[in-house]
Design a protein around this nucleic acid. Structure first.
Lengths: 346, 346
DNA sequence: CAACAACACACAACCGGTTGTGCAATTTTT
DNA sequence: AAAAATTGCACAACCGGTTGTGTGTTGTTG
């Protein structure tokens, strides 16, 4: 096992009898260096196996071409797709991506934010932990001109970039779709009622759609899950199916929950979509594999990741104080598949 | 927007009239610093909002407490769980995790390896791209004492750490299970036959199990998919179901494929598990949601991630040249669920 | 009480690129 | 041909912790 010490610009400088400053500039095609020298330097660099030390450059320039990603977990399809989008875009501009999982813990999120700051990331993309109420641990970024982008689960009142979907209108669209399929007694499976925005927005859309179509809002048809898991979905579904007239439609605020509803229904002899139309949310991979295929609301995870990464990269290239705090809305669509398909509406 | 410049140990030193070296040592409880001073320094550091600059430390010490992860994609359940395991373990020892996706492209993998090296990661965890044949781009790590761990998709002849499962015996176990369920005509859905180890090992186990139980190996029952996707799985399944006597068992080298087989079977009126017993591989989330539940082989993704990360962290704490290149085998188990359950074997 | 060991902290080099400034040589301008 | 502009490169400070070495002070020992 050889102990090749890293090749540095000093090594190149010595070999070519040039100054390190010349090497540094030559490697990035600085105009004050002649073409001859540039070629010579690049050739030597390649031959000697020179790999720039990112740390040194980052230390000097106080920027690292690194995007910090702070999310609850990487294993949810939505979030892993988000990461994928971030990584793809980052990669194109030669940025690295550091991932941290808060596991929905506020304490972890605080620590990790500090760690990202400590790593002098060029920007941060974050989807908040469930537990998080206070967001002051993000001020270290704002205060130091480090672009901060919240995605999907964003704080209500923090003045920075956001990349989101319009959960209200998505909820509205989903519900409206069920109404158009002839549903009159539409249930809603949601979660985290105590925590703001995201799910509540969808529910707001649900209720508004009912109102707009003169359907009553029935409290017992709105079930708030403790957690967004298959198991809790089954429990909630059974609760609904125990009602005197069971609902004839379900809008679930997540595909896993919708799937649990569909399967629980099947087990109880309820036919989907004939007796019960179901629509989920997210367009997780499972939604198109399950039988019957699940209608759902698209949630453009990868696009959102790309958008967030682009904000950071662009923001660094030309920081325009003026336009800070813009909000990016990405589109969602109703994806009609078997689980809610009763009639052909165009 | 304030422009808080980062607080450094120089700022603390100035405020307390101490040398930076004292600050640095006090912050890490160096024995040559008195308790009084340590307390004073830590207090001031906290008050001033000091956050150490990881880059400076990394530059000086030529180590960064960062683990580089180079994998085909983050969106596959197995790989996102792998990441999760890596991140959890890294986090405990205060390591960061940099993620890069090769998208199964050899060229990308080479570039990213270089980028990781450029970032002076403390260690690298990699699952090879499909395309990769030559692994010389990893020598920069080996040559510079940067621990390298291959996971799951590992090279055949590279002298370094590996964390894998025994694909051969897993394939054997899966097949044996089907045999025990009474299957006599067991098909095998596999992929990437041209590329070594992983899938081929499973197939080898499959064939050996057949032999050991005096069952014939029938070529037309072994289908090599072009890609591990649902669509290709459907195609391959239909191929099998077009045979004169259809197979009575399928061992699929991946859950997505197994699911496609189950659903294709159902659509053609083939009953699972009565007419056809199916077992998959990986224990992806979908396997326990699909109806009927899918029997599968567990693939301890998170554990593998943890194991890999531990190797890197431990290896750094006490680099033991001697024991380098060990191989870690993690256990797999046959998880019997509905899709293959015909009789109760204990 | 002299001699020596701890102890507590300061000094300064160092890691490896980056970049403002300076200077000599060459080219362009008048 | 002298003055001005441009070109091409060297010098050295700098980013912010880390760590080997040096020095003064206090404490212990015979």
């Amino acid at each position: 096992m050889e102990e090749n010490k890293h090749v540095t610009i000093y090594d190149i400088a010595e070999k070519l009898n040039l100054a390190t400053s010349t090497i540094s500039r030559a490697l990035k095609d600085h105009h004050s260096i002649s073409d001859k020298t540039i070629k010579k330097v690049k050739k030597a660099a390649k031959e000697m196996g020179f790999v720039p030390n990112t740390l040194a450059a980052g230390l000097r320039g106080n920027k690292t071409k690194t995007i910090g990603v702070l999310i609850p977990t990487v294993t949810q399809p939505f979030l892993s797709s988000l990461i994928s989008g971030i990584e793809i875009t980052a990669q194109k501009s030669d940025y690295s991506v550091i991932i941290m999982q808060s596991h929905d813990s506020y304490a972890d999120e605080v620590n990790m934010a500090k760690s990202l700051y400590s790593n002098r990331v060029s920007g941060v993309i974050c989807s908040l932990a469930m537990e998080t109420r206070d967001t002051s641990h993000f001020e270290q970024f704002s205060n130091n001109n480090i672009p901060l982008v919240f995605v999907d689960r964003v704080p209500k009142d923090y003045n920075t970039f956001r990349v989101v979907i319009d959960n209200y209108s998505a909820g509205y669209k989903a519900t409206k779709h069920l109404i158009e399929q002839g549903c009159l007694r539409i249930a809603h499976l949601t979660a985290g009622a105590e925590f703001g925005n995201l799910y509540n927005e969808r529910r707001r859309g649900y209720m508004e759609a009912l109102r707009d179509h003169n359907l009553p809002i029935i409290e017992e048809l709105i079930v708030d899950l403790k957690s967004v898991t298959y198991e809790d979905g089954v429990k909630a579904s059974n609760k609904l199916f125990d009602l005197k007239p069971i609902p004839d439609g379900i809008f679930a605020s997540g595909d896993i929950i919708a799937v649990s509803a569909v399967q629980t229904a099947k087990k109880r002899g309820i036919k989907v979509p004939e007796d019960l139309a179901v629509i989920g949310f997210n367009n997780d991979p499972i939604s198109e594999i399950i039988d019957p295929n699940l209608s759902t609301i698209t949630h453009p995870a990868e696009k959102m990741g790309k958008a967030a990464a682009e904000i950071i990269i662009k923001n660094l290239k030309s920081l325009k104080e003026s336009e800070v705090q813009e909000i990016t809305f990405l589109n969602t669509e109703v994806l009609v598949r078997e689980s809610s398909h009763r009639k052909d509406t165009k």
